[in-house]
Design a protein around this nucleic acid. Structure first.
Lengths: 255, 255
DNA sequence: TAGTGGTCTAGACCACGCT
DNA sequence: GCGTGGTCTAGACCACTAG
């Protein structure tokens, strides 16, 4: 007999049709994501041509969906061999998500206590980081972030009020900046640049965090951008080193 | 007059033909990368259809190249508007590259002094991280990493000797693990998972690094994988917090 | 309205690897 | 040999936006 095609197995059948609410590539992404979870690491997926025929779509479209799953680290391909389910992922990159989402994903209740909130004119260096004119109005927000009520991080961030007016009028206690930006302006984080360092806190900051002055903190300093590359926010956060770490997953993209 | 096409500007003309040594998408990637550098942030690129016609390739192929540039953060698109050069990138993700490459990229001379190198049987937890059988032989390598001769980090790493024999016979002073893996087995790092934390060093580790015991370190703990998802190496490194930080750039991919 | 990116089609040929 | 992924073609229609 000749080599058999990579057909779906009886234990993990393919669903009949794609959801019609999304694009075909998005729909297939969701289907394959679910299939990969059922099959488990190392399992062989149906071939691209089988998937294309099964759902009545072009192979190009199948590859588009599979390419995203590769970039997300859920699948891997071997030339002339097939496409396989990758090892389980450890949890997503969290440097891109907001503190609130990060904590909820870790199963904790996020909180925020405002230490100060004021409108300032952007300094030269801040205006460069925020991509706004020097002197333009900026919301400077300083908050103590908590998880299940326990101080977790000290956050000092800056947002352009030219781009996002009305932000200065909100009560920032127990409120997510990213949620507001999405709900009011429809912008979402698309990328971020961060510098991570291990530092000792200032005495005042140590007191706010409720830690000894000899307890190291993870300093996360960076800028986040929306999906069009425009700056959302620039700031620095001091995370308690005794109870926090950052998980980073890095992929070298196809070349 | 009607709206003008997005043609190449006279100041930054397109090169005539694509290099023939690579795939067309790769070649166009290189061309556009160079063009973006010449044009500078915010500049408008020739439209996809113009590029396709200019180089005599299909628009699908153009989009493939542009998609990679988007994922790499060099360009951004606006629907119905055009494709633009993004803000300058700050330096690549370095959690994926080796210490040697990272230091060279930062303009420093990397070095490595072997503290211990031994073959051990993999413990249960280590075997899981390395994806090998418990008890299989593992090279346990402990080195002091230097930059321009100055102690920079303490590195403790583990590599499977089942997968990479002969590694135990090498002199690891001033040698790059990743270079050896690429030259001898043709494997390259494709992805990595890291946990970053701020910690105080052990007294012994502080002495090796030449720092005070109160000087925080950036602990980077993780596993790196080759382009097919197989484990290359698992280990922990303590970086001096006073002279080192990690730069991380994160992209949310297309959905 | 014309030009842009977003999505998709139905093929084609190549390189690789298992049988 | 044949099935796999890798690459590419020459179109098509849609959604969005500047002029």
């Amino acid at each position: 007999m000749a080599r058999p095609k990579h057909q779906p197995t009886p234990e993990a059948p393919l669903r009949r049709r794609l959801p019609a609410s999304m694009s075909k590539a998005d729909a297939l992404y969701a289907v394959l994501e679910e299939l990969a979870a059922r099959l488990g690491p190392g399992a062989l997926l149906p071939s691209e041509r089988v998937l294309a025929e099964h759902y009545g779509i072009a192979r190009t479209t199948v590859r588009q969906a599979v390419d995203r799953l590769l970039a997300d680290g859920l699948l891997f391909r071997r030339h002339g061999h097939g496409t396989f389910v990758a090892e389980p992922r450890p949890g997503h990159i969290d440097l891109l998500t907001s503190f609130s989402h990060d904590m909820r994903r870790r199963g904790r209740q996020p909180g925020a206590k405002v230490l100060s909130a004021m409108t300032e004119a952007a300094s030269k260096s801040l205006s460069a980081r925020l991509q706004v004119a020097a002197g333009s109005p900026v919301l400077r927000l300083e908050r103590l972030r908590t998880a299940d009520g326990v101080p977790m991080a000290l956050e000092r961030t800056n947002v352009s009020l030219d781009r996002f007016p009305e932000l200065s009028e909100l009560d920032w206690n127990d409120r997510s900046l990213y949620d507001e930006l999405e709900q009011r302006w429809g912008v979402r984080a698309g990328s971020a640049e961060n510098r991570l360092a291990a530092v000792l806190p200032d005495p005042a900051d140590a007191a706010l965090l409720g830690i000894e002055r000899t307890q190291p903190c993870l300093l996360v300093e960076g800028v986040s951008y929306d999906t069009e590359g425009l700056v959302l926010e620039a700031g620095r956060s001091w995370y308690r080193g005794d109870i926090y770490d950052a998980v980073v997953r890095v992929h070298k993209l196809a070349r």
